[in-house]
């Protein structure tokens, strides 16, 4: 089996974590396992690794200098404390956070209580998210006819959303 991180060496560390009945597996070579801190038995969570895989790999180990424009909170501060600076941080650090949230929770979309003032718009944003997701699939499948149709549907849904907000 090949290491999931370097895609090169033979994997000797097999990690399995069960999150809400779903098994998540990662296979690592010794070097990558050490680098990711997997061999350190204190407080290792697969979530951290998934977060690492999601973001740091792309910047090639460079220090992540992202920060929230609203409150100046930095991404490295988040890694240190596990807490965010303000609600806008969820947008600022969106990419890395998504994989962390996915590993941490049952789903990635809120399905519970909605405050009254958001109730009118929730329907539209749900619809738009769904359409965008389908558009992505259509593009991957090179199904351009339905992609064009979906794009139009998104446009009209967004227009309705703006009207509803007003």
């Amino acid at each position: 089996m090949i290491c999931d991180v370097c895609q090169d060496k033979h994997a000797t560390v097999y990690l399995t974590q069960i999150v809400d009945g779903q098994m998540k597996k990662v296979n690592l070579c010794e070097g990558c396992a050490k680098e990711k801190g997997v061999t350190d038995p204190t407080g290792f969570a697969l979530a951290d690794l998934l977060l690492g895989l999601g973001s740091d790999e792309k910047v090639g180990g460079a220090v992540d200098e992202r920060f929230c424009e609203v409150c100046d909170f930095t991404h490295s501060e988040f890694k240190k404390t596990g807490r965010l600076g303000c609600s806008a941080c969820y947008h600022a650090f969106g990419d890395g956070l998504d994989s962390l949230i996915r590993a941490m929770h049952k789903g990635i979309r809120h399905v519970g209580k909605v405050p009254t003032r958001y109730r009118a718009t929730k329907h539209f944003t749900d619809q738009i998210t769904d359409l965008k997701h389908r558009l992505k699939i259509a593009i991957t499948d090179e199904n351009f006819e339905s992609a064009a149709q979906l794009r139009d549907e998104i446009k009209s849904a967004e227009a309705e959303f703006v009207r509803a907000k007003a």
């Binding site: 965010l84 609600s87 956070l97 962390l100 949230i101 809120h110 519970g112």
Partner: peptide, 22 residues
């Protein structure tokens, strides 16, 4: 006026409480 968005639900300081905050 609560911090809320339709995708993530109630926004909390720690992502472990996100969504319902419950």
């Amino acid at each position: 006026d609560y911090a809320f968005d339709n995708q993530h639900g109630y926004l909390t300081a720690c992502p472990t409480n996100l969504g319902t905050g419950m």
